[in-house]
Design a protein around this nucleic acid. Structure first.
Length: 435
RNA sequence: GCGAGGAUAGCUCAGUUGGUUAGAGCGCCUGUCUGUGGCACAGGAGGUCGAGGGUUCGAGCCCCUUUUCUCGCCCCA
Protein backbone atom coordinates (compact mmCIF):
# COMPACT_ATOMS: atom_id res chain seq x y z
CA UNK A 1 0.00 0.00 0.00
CA UNK A 2 1.38 3.38 -0.97
CA UNK A 3 1.19 6.63 0.96
CA UNK A 4 -1.60 9.06 0.20
CA UNK A 5 -0.72 12.30 -1.58
CA UNK A 6 -3.76 14.08 -0.13
CA UNK A 7 -3.13 16.91 2.31
CA UNK A 8 -4.60 16.53 5.78
CA UNK A 9 -8.39 16.83 5.94
CA UNK A 10 -9.53 20.42 5.77
CA UNK A 11 -6.05 21.75 5.01
CA UNK A 12 -4.61 22.86 1.70
CA UNK A 13 -1.36 22.40 -0.18
CA UNK A 14 -0.15 25.56 -1.81
CA UNK A 15 1.48 24.73 -5.12
CA UNK A 16 3.49 27.63 -6.58
CA UNK A 17 0.51 29.03 -8.51
CA UNK A 18 -1.65 28.84 -5.37
CA UNK A 19 1.07 30.40 -3.27
CA UNK A 20 1.43 33.25 -5.77
CA UNK A 21 -2.27 33.97 -5.34
CA UNK A 22 -2.03 33.80 -1.57
CA UNK A 23 0.96 36.12 -1.67
CA UNK A 24 -0.95 38.56 -3.86
CA UNK A 25 -3.86 38.63 -1.44
CA UNK A 26 -1.62 39.11 1.56
CA UNK A 27 0.29 41.85 -0.28
CA UNK A 28 -2.92 43.78 -0.91
CA UNK A 29 -3.90 43.37 2.73
CA UNK A 30 -0.49 44.39 4.01
CA UNK A 31 -0.14 47.46 1.79
CA UNK A 32 -3.61 48.64 2.68
CA UNK A 33 -3.37 48.33 6.45
CA UNK A 34 0.16 49.70 6.47
CA UNK A 35 -1.10 52.78 4.65
CA UNK A 36 -3.21 53.43 7.77
CA UNK A 37 -0.18 52.98 10.01
CA UNK A 38 -0.81 49.45 11.23
CA UNK A 39 2.23 47.43 12.30
CA UNK A 40 2.66 43.71 11.86
CA UNK A 41 3.12 41.34 14.79
CA UNK A 42 3.04 37.57 15.20
CA UNK A 43 2.81 35.00 17.98
CA UNK A 44 3.10 31.24 18.55
CA UNK A 45 0.56 28.94 16.96
CA UNK A 46 0.20 27.12 20.30
CA UNK A 47 -1.45 28.81 23.26
CA UNK A 48 -2.43 27.59 26.71
CA UNK A 49 -6.00 26.34 26.78
CA UNK A 50 -7.07 28.85 29.44
CA UNK A 51 -6.53 31.73 27.05
CA UNK A 52 -9.59 30.71 25.08
CA UNK A 53 -11.79 29.54 27.94
CA UNK A 54 -12.69 33.01 29.17
CA UNK A 55 -14.29 34.66 26.19
CA UNK A 56 -14.33 32.49 23.10
CA UNK A 57 -17.66 30.65 22.91
CA UNK A 58 -17.81 27.35 24.81
CA UNK A 59 -18.59 25.18 21.83
CA UNK A 60 -15.65 26.53 19.89
CA UNK A 61 -13.23 25.79 22.71
CA UNK A 62 -14.60 22.42 23.79
CA UNK A 63 -15.42 20.82 20.47
CA UNK A 64 -13.80 22.76 17.67
CA UNK A 65 -10.19 23.16 18.70
CA UNK A 66 -7.10 21.06 18.29
CA UNK A 67 -6.32 20.65 21.97
CA UNK A 68 -3.88 18.29 23.64
CA UNK A 69 -1.51 17.84 26.52
CA UNK A 70 2.14 18.45 25.86
CA UNK A 71 4.82 16.15 27.25
CA UNK A 72 5.00 18.23 30.38
CA UNK A 73 1.28 17.84 31.08
CA UNK A 74 0.31 21.37 29.96
CA UNK A 75 -3.01 21.76 28.19
CA UNK A 76 -2.41 23.52 24.90
CA UNK A 77 -4.51 24.58 21.93
CA UNK A 78 -3.62 25.32 18.34
CA UNK A 79 -5.02 28.83 18.08
CA UNK A 80 -8.53 28.95 16.58
CA UNK A 81 -8.54 32.75 16.45
CA UNK A 82 -6.10 35.57 17.07
CA UNK A 83 -8.01 38.07 19.20
CA UNK A 84 -7.24 36.47 22.60
CA UNK A 85 -3.58 36.23 21.62
CA UNK A 86 -3.24 39.85 20.58
CA UNK A 87 -5.06 40.89 23.74
CA UNK A 88 -2.57 38.86 25.74
CA UNK A 89 0.36 40.53 23.98
CA UNK A 90 -1.05 44.00 24.48
CA UNK A 91 -1.86 43.31 28.14
CA UNK A 92 1.70 42.12 28.73
CA UNK A 93 3.01 45.54 27.72
CA UNK A 94 -0.05 47.52 28.70
CA UNK A 95 1.93 50.34 30.35
CA UNK A 96 4.72 50.80 27.86
CA UNK A 97 2.99 50.69 24.46
CA UNK A 98 2.27 53.92 22.58
CA UNK A 99 -1.45 54.48 22.11
CA UNK A 100 -3.44 54.48 19.95
CA UNK A 101 -1.99 51.17 18.99
CA UNK A 102 -2.53 49.90 15.46
CA UNK A 103 -1.55 46.26 14.93
CA UNK A 104 -2.15 43.62 12.31
CA UNK A 105 -1.20 40.02 11.65
CA UNK A 106 -1.98 37.25 9.15
CA UNK A 107 -1.86 34.09 11.26
CA UNK A 108 -2.91 30.61 10.25
CA UNK A 109 -5.68 29.35 12.48
CA UNK A 110 -7.09 25.86 13.08
CA UNK A 111 -10.54 24.62 13.93
CA UNK A 112 -11.61 21.02 14.31
CA UNK A 113 -14.82 20.88 12.32
CA UNK A 114 -16.38 19.38 9.22
CA UNK A 115 -15.06 21.22 6.16
CA UNK A 116 -17.60 22.98 3.97
CA UNK A 117 -17.74 25.77 1.45
CA UNK A 118 -15.63 28.69 2.60
CA UNK A 119 -14.70 26.98 5.87
CA UNK A 120 -11.84 24.56 6.16
CA UNK A 121 -9.89 23.38 9.18
CA UNK A 122 -6.91 25.61 8.51
CA UNK A 123 -7.16 29.12 7.20
CA UNK A 124 -5.25 32.35 7.27
CA UNK A 125 -6.90 35.41 8.66
CA UNK A 126 -5.91 39.03 8.50
CA UNK A 127 -6.46 40.51 11.95
CA UNK A 128 -6.60 44.29 12.23
CA UNK A 129 -6.96 45.86 15.66
CA UNK A 130 -7.00 49.38 17.02
CA UNK A 131 -6.43 49.78 20.76
CA UNK A 132 -6.85 52.79 23.01
CA UNK A 133 -9.64 54.76 21.33
CA UNK A 134 -12.93 54.78 23.21
CA UNK A 135 -14.95 56.79 20.73
CA UNK A 136 -16.67 56.00 17.46
CA UNK A 137 -13.74 57.29 15.39
CA UNK A 138 -12.11 53.91 16.05
CA UNK A 139 -15.01 52.02 14.47
CA UNK A 140 -15.04 54.48 11.61
CA UNK A 141 -11.37 53.83 10.88
CA UNK A 142 -11.62 50.06 11.24
CA UNK A 143 -14.52 49.88 8.80
CA UNK A 144 -12.72 52.30 6.53
CA UNK A 145 -9.72 49.95 6.52
CA UNK A 146 -11.97 47.01 5.64
CA UNK A 147 -13.50 49.05 2.81
CA UNK A 148 -10.07 50.10 1.57
CA UNK A 149 -8.94 46.48 1.35
CA UNK A 150 -12.03 45.62 -0.66
CA UNK A 151 -11.39 48.63 -2.89
CA UNK A 152 -7.76 47.63 -3.41
CA UNK A 153 -8.89 44.17 -4.43
CA UNK A 154 -10.90 45.90 -7.14
CA UNK A 155 -14.30 45.36 -5.54
CA UNK A 156 -16.99 47.94 -6.20
CA UNK A 157 -19.77 48.93 -3.83
CA UNK A 158 -22.43 46.89 -5.63
CA UNK A 159 -20.45 43.73 -4.94
CA UNK A 160 -20.75 43.82 -1.16
CA UNK A 161 -22.63 45.41 1.71
CA UNK A 162 -21.33 46.46 5.10
CA UNK A 163 -23.86 45.73 7.84
CA UNK A 164 -23.70 47.58 11.12
CA UNK A 165 -25.29 47.10 14.48
CA UNK A 166 -24.81 47.97 18.11
CA UNK A 167 -24.89 45.14 20.60
CA UNK A 168 -25.56 47.63 23.35
CA UNK A 169 -28.62 48.84 21.49
CA UNK A 170 -29.81 45.33 20.76
CA UNK A 171 -29.38 44.35 24.40
CA UNK A 172 -31.37 47.38 25.53
CA UNK A 173 -34.11 46.62 23.07
CA UNK A 174 -34.34 43.06 24.32
CA UNK A 175 -34.24 43.94 27.99
CA UNK A 176 -36.06 47.29 28.18
CA UNK A 177 -38.35 47.27 25.18
CA UNK A 178 -39.23 43.57 25.07
CA UNK A 179 -38.57 43.16 28.81
CA UNK A 180 -36.78 39.84 28.55
CA UNK A 181 -34.69 38.11 31.18
CA UNK A 182 -31.01 37.25 30.73
CA UNK A 183 -31.54 33.66 29.63
CA UNK A 184 -34.22 34.63 27.14
CA UNK A 185 -32.00 37.35 25.76
CA UNK A 186 -29.14 34.97 25.16
CA UNK A 187 -31.30 32.35 23.49
CA UNK A 188 -32.95 35.00 21.40
CA UNK A 189 -29.65 36.54 20.28
CA UNK A 190 -28.62 33.15 18.90
CA UNK A 191 -31.98 32.79 17.20
CA UNK A 192 -31.77 36.27 15.69
CA UNK A 193 -28.31 35.42 14.39
CA UNK A 194 -29.73 32.47 12.43
CA UNK A 195 -32.83 34.26 11.27
CA UNK A 196 -31.89 34.74 7.64
CA UNK A 197 -31.33 30.99 7.30
CA UNK A 198 -34.89 30.07 8.21
CA UNK A 199 -38.44 30.61 7.01
CA UNK A 200 -40.31 33.41 8.72
CA UNK A 201 -42.93 31.01 10.10
CA UNK A 202 -40.20 28.81 11.51
CA UNK A 203 -38.52 31.78 13.09
CA UNK A 204 -41.80 32.96 14.60
CA UNK A 205 -42.50 29.52 16.03
CA UNK A 206 -39.09 29.35 17.68
CA UNK A 207 -39.35 32.91 18.89
CA UNK A 208 -42.74 32.09 20.43
CA UNK A 209 -41.30 29.15 22.29
CA UNK A 210 -38.65 31.43 23.76
CA UNK A 211 -40.97 34.31 24.53
CA UNK A 212 -44.22 32.69 25.62
CA UNK A 213 -43.04 31.41 28.99
CA UNK A 214 -42.67 35.00 30.02
CA UNK A 215 -45.77 36.46 31.52
CA UNK A 216 -45.35 39.73 29.67
CA UNK A 217 -47.63 41.28 27.12
CA UNK A 218 -49.11 39.21 24.31
CA UNK A 219 -47.89 39.29 20.68
CA UNK A 220 -44.34 39.68 21.82
CA UNK A 221 -42.99 37.70 18.91
CA UNK A 222 -44.79 40.01 16.48
CA UNK A 223 -43.36 42.97 18.28
CA UNK A 224 -39.95 41.34 17.92
CA UNK A 225 -40.49 40.71 14.24
CA UNK A 226 -41.48 44.34 13.68
CA UNK A 227 -38.32 45.34 15.45
CA UNK A 228 -36.14 43.09 13.35
CA UNK A 229 -37.68 44.36 10.15
CA UNK A 230 -36.52 47.88 10.88
CA UNK A 231 -34.14 48.84 8.10
CA UNK A 232 -33.14 52.26 9.32
CA UNK A 233 -32.14 53.79 12.60
CA UNK A 234 -34.87 56.40 12.12
CA UNK A 235 -37.57 53.77 12.41
CA UNK A 236 -36.55 52.58 15.84
CA UNK A 237 -39.16 52.87 18.61
CA UNK A 238 -39.53 56.50 19.69
CA UNK A 239 -38.11 55.97 23.17
CA UNK A 240 -34.79 54.91 21.67
CA UNK A 241 -34.26 57.91 19.43
CA UNK A 242 -32.04 59.54 22.05
CA UNK A 243 -30.20 56.40 23.10
CA UNK A 244 -26.42 56.88 23.18
CA UNK A 245 -25.89 53.94 20.82
CA UNK A 246 -28.25 55.45 18.28
CA UNK A 247 -26.23 58.64 18.34
CA UNK A 248 -23.05 56.66 17.85
CA UNK A 249 -24.51 54.71 14.95
CA UNK A 250 -25.65 57.96 13.37
CA UNK A 251 -22.21 59.52 13.63
CA UNK A 252 -20.58 56.34 12.35
CA UNK A 253 -22.84 56.09 9.33
CA UNK A 254 -22.56 59.79 8.52
CA UNK A 255 -18.79 59.72 8.75
CA UNK A 256 -18.55 56.63 6.57
CA UNK A 257 -20.77 58.32 3.98
CA UNK A 258 -18.40 61.28 4.01
CA UNK A 259 -15.57 58.84 3.28
CA UNK A 260 -17.62 57.67 0.29
CA UNK A 261 -18.34 54.34 1.92
CA UNK A 262 -21.98 54.27 0.95
CA UNK A 263 -22.72 50.55 0.81
CA UNK A 264 -23.59 50.42 4.48
CA UNK A 265 -26.73 49.21 6.08
CA UNK A 266 -28.12 49.20 9.61
CA UNK A 267 -29.07 45.64 10.57
CA UNK A 268 -30.50 45.21 14.01
CA UNK A 269 -30.36 41.44 13.72
CA UNK A 270 -26.58 41.39 13.29
CA UNK A 271 -25.12 39.65 16.35
CA UNK A 272 -21.89 37.77 15.59
CA UNK A 273 -20.95 34.74 17.59
CA UNK A 274 -18.16 35.76 19.92
CA UNK A 275 -19.12 36.68 23.46
CA UNK A 276 -16.42 39.32 23.74
CA UNK A 277 -18.04 41.84 21.41
CA UNK A 278 -19.71 44.46 23.57
CA UNK A 279 -20.77 47.37 21.37
CA UNK A 280 -20.63 48.18 17.65
CA UNK A 281 -20.35 45.10 15.42
CA UNK A 282 -20.12 44.97 11.64
CA UNK A 283 -20.10 42.36 8.94
CA UNK A 284 -19.27 42.44 5.24
CA UNK A 285 -21.66 40.49 3.02
CA UNK A 286 -21.11 39.28 -0.51
CA UNK A 287 -23.93 40.50 -2.74
CA UNK A 288 -23.32 37.87 -5.40
CA UNK A 289 -26.42 35.64 -5.69
CA UNK A 290 -24.27 32.49 -5.67
CA UNK A 291 -22.42 33.47 -2.51
CA UNK A 292 -24.81 35.62 -0.55
CA UNK A 293 -23.16 35.19 2.77
CA UNK A 294 -21.18 36.92 5.42
CA UNK A 295 -17.53 37.12 4.46
CA UNK A 296 -15.89 38.71 7.46
CA UNK A 297 -16.52 41.15 10.24
CA UNK A 298 -15.56 42.51 13.59
CA UNK A 299 -16.44 44.98 16.25
CA UNK A 300 -15.60 46.44 19.62
CA UNK A 301 -14.38 44.18 22.42
CA UNK A 302 -13.36 46.51 25.21
CA UNK A 303 -13.25 43.92 27.95
CA UNK A 304 -10.71 41.46 26.67
CA UNK A 305 -7.39 43.09 27.57
CA UNK A 306 -8.63 43.65 31.13
CA UNK A 307 -8.92 39.88 31.64
CA UNK A 308 -5.16 39.76 32.04
CA UNK A 309 -5.28 41.77 35.23
CA UNK A 310 -4.38 45.12 33.72
CA UNK A 311 -6.45 48.23 33.23
CA UNK A 312 -9.05 47.58 30.50
CA UNK A 313 -8.33 49.00 27.07
CA UNK A 314 -10.82 50.09 24.41
CA UNK A 315 -10.37 47.73 21.46
CA UNK A 316 -11.86 47.53 17.98
CA UNK A 317 -10.92 45.09 15.26
CA UNK A 318 -11.87 42.67 12.54
CA UNK A 319 -10.70 39.44 10.97
CA UNK A 320 -10.70 38.62 7.27
CA UNK A 321 -10.25 35.01 6.20
CA UNK A 322 -8.32 34.00 3.10
CA UNK A 323 -10.79 31.35 1.91
CA UNK A 324 -13.89 33.50 1.92
CA UNK A 325 -11.96 36.36 0.33
CA UNK A 326 -10.64 34.07 -2.38
CA UNK A 327 -14.16 32.82 -3.08
CA UNK A 328 -15.33 36.40 -3.35
CA UNK A 329 -12.52 37.43 -5.69
CA UNK A 330 -13.02 34.39 -7.91
CA UNK A 331 -16.76 34.87 -8.13
CA UNK A 332 -16.44 38.54 -9.03
CA UNK A 333 -13.59 37.92 -11.46
CA UNK A 334 -11.19 40.05 -9.49
CA UNK A 335 -8.22 37.72 -9.42
CA UNK A 336 -5.40 39.03 -11.59
CA UNK A 337 -3.03 36.83 -13.54
CA UNK A 338 -0.04 36.72 -11.32
CA UNK A 339 3.33 36.31 -12.96
CA UNK A 340 5.90 34.00 -11.47
CA UNK A 341 8.87 35.63 -9.76
CA UNK A 342 11.20 34.22 -12.40
CA UNK A 343 11.83 36.81 -15.12
CA UNK A 344 13.89 34.76 -17.54
CA UNK A 345 14.28 31.08 -18.41
CA UNK A 346 17.70 30.43 -19.90
CA UNK A 347 17.66 27.85 -22.68
CA UNK A 348 21.07 26.31 -23.32
CA UNK A 349 21.76 25.20 -26.86
CA UNK A 350 24.47 22.63 -27.18
CA UNK A 351 27.02 21.77 -24.52
CA UNK A 352 27.49 25.29 -23.18
CA UNK A 353 26.60 24.97 -19.51
CA UNK A 354 30.11 25.69 -18.27
CA UNK A 355 30.54 28.72 -20.50
CA UNK A 356 27.07 30.09 -19.70
CA UNK A 357 27.53 30.30 -15.94
CA UNK A 358 29.21 33.69 -16.00
CA UNK A 359 26.70 35.47 -18.15
CA UNK A 360 23.80 34.08 -16.11
CA UNK A 361 25.47 35.16 -12.89
CA UNK A 362 25.84 38.63 -14.41
CA UNK A 363 22.11 38.77 -15.16
CA UNK A 364 21.32 37.97 -11.55
CA UNK A 365 23.88 40.49 -10.36
CA UNK A 366 22.04 43.09 -12.41
CA UNK A 367 18.75 42.25 -10.75
CA UNK A 368 17.00 39.65 -12.90
CA UNK A 369 15.59 36.40 -11.58
CA UNK A 370 16.93 33.74 -13.90
CA UNK A 371 16.29 29.99 -13.99
CA UNK A 372 18.53 27.84 -16.17
CA UNK A 373 17.66 24.67 -18.03
CA UNK A 374 20.64 22.38 -17.64
CA UNK A 375 18.76 19.34 -18.93
CA UNK A 376 20.51 19.23 -22.29
CA UNK A 377 17.18 18.58 -23.97
CA UNK A 378 16.24 19.85 -27.37
CA UNK A 379 15.36 23.52 -27.60
CA UNK A 380 11.62 23.02 -28.04
CA UNK A 381 11.40 20.96 -24.85
CA UNK A 382 13.22 23.62 -22.91
CA UNK A 383 10.89 26.32 -24.23
CA UNK A 384 7.91 24.20 -23.31
CA UNK A 385 9.13 24.05 -19.73
CA UNK A 386 9.28 27.85 -19.65
CA UNK A 387 5.77 28.09 -21.08
CA UNK A 388 4.41 25.64 -18.54
CA UNK A 389 6.01 27.50 -15.68
CA UNK A 390 4.38 30.70 -16.93
CA UNK A 391 7.71 32.49 -17.37
CA UNK A 392 7.43 35.29 -19.90
CA UNK A 393 10.98 35.46 -21.26
CA UNK A 394 13.28 32.87 -22.72
CA UNK A 395 16.97 33.63 -23.21
CA UNK A 396 18.82 31.50 -25.75
CA UNK A 397 22.45 30.83 -24.99
CA UNK A 398 24.47 28.91 -27.57
CA UNK A 399 27.94 29.06 -29.07
CA UNK A 400 26.82 31.81 -31.42
CA UNK A 401 25.66 34.06 -28.59
CA UNK A 402 28.64 33.36 -26.35
CA UNK A 403 31.06 34.27 -29.16
CA UNK A 404 29.29 37.46 -30.24
CA UNK A 405 28.06 38.47 -26.73
CA UNK A 406 24.74 39.24 -28.36
CA UNK A 407 22.08 37.10 -26.77
CA UNK A 408 18.70 36.12 -28.13
CA UNK A 409 15.80 37.10 -25.89
CA UNK A 410 12.29 36.03 -26.72
CA UNK A 411 9.05 37.19 -25.17
CA UNK A 412 6.83 34.14 -25.09
CA UNK A 413 3.67 36.18 -24.76
CA UNK A 414 4.20 38.44 -27.77
CA UNK A 415 6.48 36.06 -29.65
CA UNK A 416 8.93 38.92 -30.28
CA UNK A 417 12.56 37.80 -30.49
CA UNK A 418 15.59 40.10 -30.50
CA UNK A 419 19.39 39.99 -30.17
CA UNK A 420 20.97 42.29 -27.62
CA UNK A 421 23.81 42.78 -25.19
CA UNK A 422 23.36 41.60 -21.62
CA UNK A 423 22.90 45.19 -20.40
CA UNK A 424 20.19 45.88 -22.93
CA UNK A 425 18.39 42.63 -22.12
CA UNK A 426 18.36 43.52 -18.44
CA UNK A 427 16.73 46.87 -19.12
CA UNK A 428 14.16 45.36 -21.52
CA UNK A 429 13.11 42.75 -18.98
CA UNK A 430 13.06 45.26 -16.12
CA UNK A 431 10.87 47.62 -18.14
CA UNK A 432 8.54 44.76 -18.92
CA UNK A 433 8.37 43.78 -15.27
CA UNK A 434 7.07 47.24 -14.37
CA UNK A 435 4.10 46.98 -16.71
C1' G B 1 -21.57 15.65 16.26
C1' C B 2 -26.03 15.01 12.39
C1' G B 3 -27.97 14.61 7.13
C1' A B 4 -27.60 14.13 1.60
C1' G B 5 -24.65 13.08 -2.73
C1' G B 6 -19.96 11.62 -4.97
C1' A B 7 -14.99 8.67 -5.59
C1' U B 8 -13.44 4.94 -12.75
C1' A B 9 -6.27 7.15 -16.58
C1' G B 10 -2.48 13.10 -14.59
C1' C B 11 -7.45 16.23 -15.34
C1' U B 12 -12.86 16.35 -16.75
C1' C B 13 -16.04 12.49 -17.25
C1' A B 14 -18.83 8.05 -20.13
C1' G B 15 -19.58 2.95 -18.82
C1' U B 16 -26.64 -0.21 -20.96
C1' U B 17 -31.03 -5.32 -16.75
C1' G B 18 -24.35 -7.71 -13.33
C1' G B 19 -21.60 -10.73 -18.86
C1' U B 20 -15.23 -11.11 -23.52
C1' U B 21 -9.34 -7.69 -23.03
C1' A B 22 -12.92 -0.91 -18.87
C1' G B 23 -13.46 3.83 -22.89
C1' A B 24 -13.52 9.26 -24.74
C1' G B 25 -11.69 14.30 -24.76
C1' C B 26 -7.79 17.05 -22.91
C1' G B 27 -2.93 16.40 -20.88
C1' C B 28 1.80 13.46 -20.89
C1' C B 29 5.94 10.84 -23.70
C1' U B 30 8.33 9.77 -28.63
C1' G B 31 8.95 10.88 -33.72
C1' U B 32 8.25 13.87 -38.35
C1' C B 33 11.89 18.44 -36.53
C1' U B 34 19.74 17.35 -32.81
C1' G B 35 18.93 26.57 -32.83
C1' U B 36 12.77 27.99 -31.20
C1' G B 37 6.67 26.82 -27.67
C1' G B 38 1.23 27.23 -29.08
C1' C B 39 -0.45 24.21 -35.11
C1' A B 40 -0.63 19.50 -37.92
C1' C B 41 0.27 14.30 -38.66
C1' A B 42 1.93 9.37 -36.85
C1' G B 43 2.88 6.31 -32.80
C1' G B 44 3.16 5.23 -27.40
C1' A B 45 2.81 5.00 -22.06
C1' G B 46 -0.57 5.30 -18.29
C1' G B 47 -6.24 1.84 -14.38
C1' U B 48 -5.28 -3.67 -8.58
C1' C B 49 -12.54 1.19 -11.13
C1' G B 50 -10.72 5.03 -3.19
C1' A B 51 -9.77 0.76 0.56
C1' G B 52 -11.55 -3.85 2.97
C1' G B 53 -15.16 -7.64 3.20
C1' G B 54 -19.70 -10.07 1.19
C1' U B 55 -23.46 -11.97 -2.60
C1' U B 56 -22.79 -14.38 -7.54
C1' C B 57 -20.66 -19.10 -12.39
C1' G B 58 -19.28 -13.91 -13.12
C1' A B 59 -19.02 -7.24 -9.77
C1' G B 60 -16.82 -0.70 -12.06
C1' C B 61 -22.28 -1.82 -11.44
C1' C B 62 -25.73 -5.19 -5.93
C1' C B 63 -25.00 -5.43 -0.10
C1' C B 64 -22.01 -4.14 4.44
C1' U B 65 -17.87 -1.56 6.66
C1' U B 66 -14.29 2.21 6.16
C1' U B 67 -11.51 6.47 4.28
C1' U B 68 -12.06 10.79 1.75
C1' C B 69 -14.34 14.85 -1.16
C1' U B 70 -18.61 18.09 -2.03
C1' C B 71 -23.02 20.46 -0.23
C1' G B 72 -26.04 21.48 3.95
C1' C B 73 -27.21 21.40 9.57
C1' C B 74 -25.13 22.51 14.37
C1' C B 75 -21.65 26.25 15.38
C1' C B 76 -18.93 30.22 13.63
C1' A B 77 -13.85 33.13 11.39
Amino acid sequence: MSLSTEPYKGARDFYPEDERLQKYMFDVMRHTVESFGYEEYDAPILEPLELFLAKTSDEVVNEQTYAFEDRGGRKVVIRPEMTPTVSRMVAAKRQELAYPLRWYSIPNLWRYERPQRGRLREHWQLNVDLFGIDNIAAETEIIQVAGAIMHNFGATHEMYTIKLNSRKLLDQLLSDYLKLGDVQQQTLRRLIDRRNKMEESEFLAEADSVLNPSQHEANLSEKLLDLLNIKSIDNLPAEFKDHASVHELNILMTDLQKLLITNIEFDISLVRGFDYYNDIVFEVNDNHPDNNRSMFGGGRYDGLVGLFGVEPLPSVGFGMGDITMKNFLELHNLLPNIRPETDVYAVLIGDVASKAHTVIADLREMGLNVAVDFSGRKTDKQIQSAVKKGIHYVLFIGEKELDSEQYTIKNLITGVEEQHSIQRIVSIVKDYRQQ
